[in-house]
Design a protein around this nucleic acid. Structure first.
Length: 104
DNA sequence: CTAATGACATTTG
DNA sequence: ACAAATGCCATTA
């Protein structure tokens, strides 16, 4: 399943690190960042798949579940628990960006 | 198979 | 920075 591959990448992300939909998509082998997000929505947290570590490429958090603003708050909370400071829906990708692809 | 949608990305205004 | 438009892939109706 496509989602399974997505989850695999997310699990590879260590604590205190985040990754982008694009990276995950590329790491999987396609360019469907959206399909990645969908996989999350369909599976919020199957068994150890912290989707809150997934952020946009613009340093935005985006959503998490349900609406938007209300959901990012929870994401921020979880990210802070991991040691990632989030300000106004922005994450320090340069500090906590985990590269899934080996070569870069 | 086609149409529509989605927690997106990128470009343009 | 935001809005709109376009592209791309997967899933669902």
């Amino acid at each position: 399943m496509f989602s399974e591959k997505v989850f695999s990448q997310v699990r590879r992300v260590p604590r205190g690190k985040v990754t982008t939909y694009k990276e995950i998509a590329l790491a999987i082998g396609c360019k469907s960042f959206r399909a990645v997000g969908q996989a999350m929505k369909r599976n919020p947290d199957p068994e150890g798949t912290p989707c809150y570590r997934i952020v946009h490429s613009d340093r935005r958090i985006g959503g998490y579940c349900g609406s938007k603003k209300s959901s990012i708050m929870k994401k921020i909370r979880l990210l802070e628990e991991d040691g990632i400071m989030v300000k106004a829906g922005r994450v320090d990708l340069e500090k906590h960006f985990f590269r899934l692809r080996k070569n870069l």
